[in-house]
Each structure stands twice: as structure tokens, then as C-alpha cells.
Amino acid sequence: MIQLKTLLNCIDNSGATIVECVRNMGMKRHGGVGDRIIVVVQKARSMGDSGPGNTTATGGANKVRRGDIRHAIIVRTRKKYQRKDGMVVRFDDNACALIGKNGDPIGTRINGVVGAELREKQQSKILSLASMHV
């Protein structure tokens, strides 16, 4: 149940750590796993990490900065949701991954578990980046 003012963890390596939802795309009241939202970056990793010659380690560490407005895909929700086969899945936090306007993920890596609903919502790029899905 991601809605206006919800704070989410950003689990990709775009540089953002905590983002705030400002809008659900698609006239939805609440966002679930796989939904697209617009977020404001509230907290970003410090810019000092990515110097010249340190690009491989940090990846896209400063692709976003605090105050940026970006699109994102929800990958985990605290609210439990039921699947077609009766299983109910719940995570301990709300998390998302930033994407560009065209739908491609901004980060190059996603560290954390994501919901398998991303495949149904045509977000396979994020699903393949993730190291684990449930």
C-alpha cells in the first residue's frame, strides 16, 4: 500500500537510499509490487565515493541526488498480497528501484529480494537484475 508520502528504501545502486512517493501512476489508490510510482529522493549516498578510477566499485553512485524527482517500480511491500495460487507474501519493508522515463532501470544492480509479481507486470528487467525473488 504505497501512497502519497510513503517512504521507501531504494535498493538499487543508483545512489538513492530513501525515497518518498509523491504519485501513483495509473489512477491507483495504493501501489503494490510491480506498480510504477513517482518519487522524490530524500536521502542519497554521499557523492565523494565516485571519483575517477573508482567507477567500477560504485557503479552509478551519483546518478541521482537529493531532491530529484524520478519514476520508480515498487519491488517489496509491507502489506501482504495474495497470489492466484493462494499463497500470501509479505515483506518486512517497502522498497523500490528507480527507473528512467522510458522504463529502463537507472541502477545497474539490485541488492535485495524482490517480489515475483514483477514478471506479470512486465518488469522483467528489474527482476533479472535482482539477485533473489520470492
Binding site: G86, M87, V89, R90, F91, D92, V113, S131
Partner: peptide, 24 residues
């Protein structure tokens, strides 16, 4: 009839209700 399983996967806690008679 269902069981609720809880695990930690990569720092995040994950809970899942599994129906024991599910064909899956």
C-alpha cells in the same frame, strides 16, 4: 489449511502463507 513461514532473505524478512493442499 495453511502454514505461515518466515525467513530472512538478504537482510529483509519475508513471510509466506502456503496452502498445504495446493497442487503447486
Amino acid at each position: 489449511t495453511a502454514i505461515l513461514l518466515r525467513n530472512r532473505m538478504m537482510v529483509t524478512g519475508v513471510e509466506m502463507w502456503v496452502k498445504i493442499y495446493s497442487p503447486n
